[in-house]
Simulated assay, not measured.
Amino acid sequence: MPATSKAQQKAAGAALAAKRGDEPKSKLKGASKRMEVSMTETQLEEFAHTRRKGLPDKKD
């Protein structure tokens, strides 16, 4: 399932980096913190690799 907004895509990218160990988990906050705990690495990859062109800044 692809991300539905730029903010969601960005949060998924941050969560994915923390899950892989590239960034410390302590730097996460808000949605990215919840995503890191509740989603698998594969799901995060799908969200993070969504093309940003045409996406709204935030989901309504």
Score class of each variant (00 low, 15 high):
residue 8 Q to K: 13
residue 9 Q to G: 03
residue 36 E to F: 00
residue 40 T to I: 09
residue 51 R to I: 05
residue 23 E to A: 10
residue 30 G to S: 03
residue 36 E to M: 08
residue 21 G to Q: 09
residue 9 Q to M: 12
residue 5 S to Q: 06
residue 49 H to Y: 10
residue 2 P to S: 04
residue 58 K to V: 10
residue 20 R to T: 10
residue 3 A to F: 01
residue 2 P to I: 02
residue 8 Q to W: 00
residue 57 D to Y: 07
residue 9 Q to S: 10
residue 28 L to Q: 03
residue 39 M to G: 13
residue 26 S to Q: 11
residue 34 R to L: 12
residue 52 R to F: 04
residue 12 A to N: 08
residue 46 E to L: 02
residue 5 S to P: 04
residue 46 E to G: 07
residue 32 S to R: 00
residue 8 Q to R: 15
residue 5 S to K: 05
residue 15 A to K: 07
residue 26 S to V: 05
residue 26 S to G: 06
residue 55 L to G: 06
residue 4 T to F: 10
residue 53 K to Q: 14
residue 45 E to V: 06
residue 39 M to T: 14
residue 48 A to T: 06
residue 15 A to P: 13
residue 31 A to D: 10
residue 16 L to Y: 02
residue 2 P to W: 01
residue 58 K to M: 10
residue 15 A to W: 05
residue 48 A to Q: 10
residue 27 K to S: 11
residue 20 R to D: 14
residue 20 R to N: 13
residue 50 T to F: 00
residue 19 K to H: 13
residue 43 Q to T: 13
residue 46 E to Q: 12
residue 20 R to Q: 14
residue 22 D to V: 03
residue 37 V to P: 08
residue 39 M to E: 15
residue 11 A to K: 02
residue 18 A to W: 00
residue 28 L to R: 01
residue 6 K to D: 05
residue 43 Q to D: 15
residue 55 L to F: 08
residue 35 M to T: 01
residue 49 H to I: 01
residue 11 A to Y: 00
residue 2 P to T: 07
residue 19 K to I: 12
residue 53 K to H: 12
residue 35 M to G: 04
residue 60 D to I: 14
residue 31 A to E: 11
residue 55 L to K: 08
residue 22 D to Y: 04
residue 3 A to Q: 09
residue 19 K to M: 14
residue 45 E to F: 02
residue 33 K to D: 07
residue 32 S to V: 00
residue 23 E to K: 13
residue 38 S to V: 13
residue 37 V to R: 15
residue 32 S to A: 14
residue 49 H to L: 09
residue 28 L to F: 03
residue 2 P to D: 03
residue 3 A to R: 11
residue 37 V to L: 13
residue 32 S to G: 06
residue 2 P to K: 10
residue 22 D to G: 03
residue 13 G to S: 09
residue 51 R to V: 06
residue 43 Q to G: 11
residue 21 G to E: 12
residue 32 S to Y: 00
residue 15 A to V: 03
residue 31 A to M: 07
residue 19 K to D: 15
residue 16 L to G: 09
residue 1 M to E: 05
residue 25 K to V: 05
residue 1 M to P: 10
residue 50 T to R: 07
residue 52 R to C: 04
residue 54 G to P: 07
residue 21 G to V: 07
residue 5 S to T: 08
residue 27 K to N: 10
residue 30 G to D: 04
residue 35 M to R: 11
residue 44 L to I: 08
residue 19 K to G: 12
residue 33 K to G: 01
residue 33 K to I: 00
residue 16 L to Q: 07
residue 6 K to A: 09
residue 25 K to L: 05
residue 49 H to N: 14
residue 32 S to M: 05
residue 31 A to I: 00
residue 37 V to N: 15
residue 18 A to K: 00
residue 45 E to C: 02
residue 12 A to T: 03
residue 31 A to W: 02
residue 6 K to N: 09
residue 54 G to I: 05
residue 18 A to C: 12
residue 2 P to N: 07
residue 17 A to S: 14
residue 28 L to D: 04
residue 6 K to Y: 03
